[in-house]
Nucleic acid binder design. Structure first.
Lengths: 216, 216
DNA sequence: GAGCAAATGTATACCAGGTGCAGAATCAAC
DNA sequence: GTTGATTCTGCACCTGGTATACATTTGCTC
């Protein structure tokens, strides 16, 4: 275990390749036949690995799909930490999201590469996968709360409340985009609307719901 | 199937009693030994029912615990719909939550009746139950969004964004209370703080995160 | 490059949640 | 009662996931 310099070592590389092979075999099968229609035994067979080994790499069937998004769990928190000193966190998150939209980052939901689109659709239609995504959402919330506590000098409660609001809005926007694209809309056509929606959403977040349904 | 007037009929009454019996047996066992330590077969046996029948009443093991909270899924939406005409939705939700706190409504997390407290604790400590609760949260979001669309004259996007923010804050507050009580704090001691926290949270929701981490 | 310990992989058997099915028991209406 | 529809039951079965015990590979050391 452990390598000090550059070379990851044959063992590590092989593990990584096995992991990739399993994941790719799994996603290909799932996209073809549906998540619930494919058993882990079939995935293991397709990846030429024993069932036990599969579970050594991915602790649950859902992880075969969601592990790719695990990195994004702390993304918002990282953006907040990386912002210029003495600047507000919210614009940093907003700008990052807008950039993601323009670059068609899959995490924004605005990516209609066929495989990505079908993957998003599959996730949306599979309750257990949606549940797994919610776990990431919860992780993103606490990571962001911690980042806000440490870098924005926000007290515990404020940090947590701000975090849940920001993450909730972030996800609502992404999910809206993903849902539209999953059922046919084109990313390029949706982009302008997505940008406008995002700007509006972050304004709402900044200004609060004061004007909501009030007798104007 | 179906009864027109008063009498529910013997069959319906019996079904209801069976349902109660299963649920009570389940919760008693779960509180005693832990959710994952008790199998559905044991629950079925304790309720003197076959496993197959148990699953006819509760489609999944988790529902044995969470079905009681299903009614609360649309509670916030109902509060919004029931508010006086031409008033803002947010104060209605806030006042309802504050009232819930004072009345120790379990949904606010501020209830330390031993059984409720242990139930909350069990849920918090069991990932699959937490996941099930998230589903209610999602249901609450869409119900609230619809209520806002229909009664606050809010456009689609605004309604959804407001809904996810409100529900997120609501849950954060309740979860904070539940977590504190689950590990020993007393409801009466926590009440003042919970009220203050809730008022602060709803102010934040109204006024937005403008002041968050900005160079004051 | 031979050999060894640690790490990985495999086969098998097993457990628990959940479903399909055929038939027994129950209920309600005539 | 008899009949017809529900409901309940026992059973076999599938799938996700784990424990055990054993074989294989790999990296390192001498």
């Amino acid at each position: 275990m452990g390598y000090v310099d550059g070379k990851p070592g044959l063992r590590e590389r092989k593990k990584q390749r096995t992991r990739e092979a399993i994941s790719e075999a799994a996603i290909a099968l799932f996209l073809e036949q549906g998540f619930n229609q494919v058993s882990v035994a079939q995935v293991a067979e397709a990846a030429e690995v024993s069932k036990r080994t599969l579970f050594a790499y991915f602790p649950a069937k859902e992880d075969l799909v969601t592990h790719r998004l695990a990195d994004h769990e702390t993304e918002i928190a990282r953006v907040v930490r990386a912002r210029p000193p003495r600047s507000a966190p919210l614009p940093a998150v907003r700008d990052h999201f807008l950039r993601g939209l323009r670059e068609r980052d899959p995490i924004t939901g605005l990516n209609d590469v066929p495989e990505v689109r079908r993957l998003h659709r599959m996730i949306l239609e599979t309750p257990s996968l949606v549940a797994r995504m919610q776990r990431f959402k919860a992780g993103a919330e606490s990571a962001l709360a911690q980042a806000l506590r440490e870098t924005a000098d926000a007290p515990e409660l404020t940090a947590r409340l701000a975090a849940v609001q920001i993450v909730a809005v972030h996800w609502a926007l992404a999910q809206d985009n993903a849902a539209r694209l999953a059922y046919g809309e084109k990313a390029d056509a949706r982009c302008a609307g997505a940008l406008a929606d995002a700007r509006f959403a972050f304004e709402l977040l900044e200004n609060g719901l004061r004007d909501l349904g009030a007798p104007r």
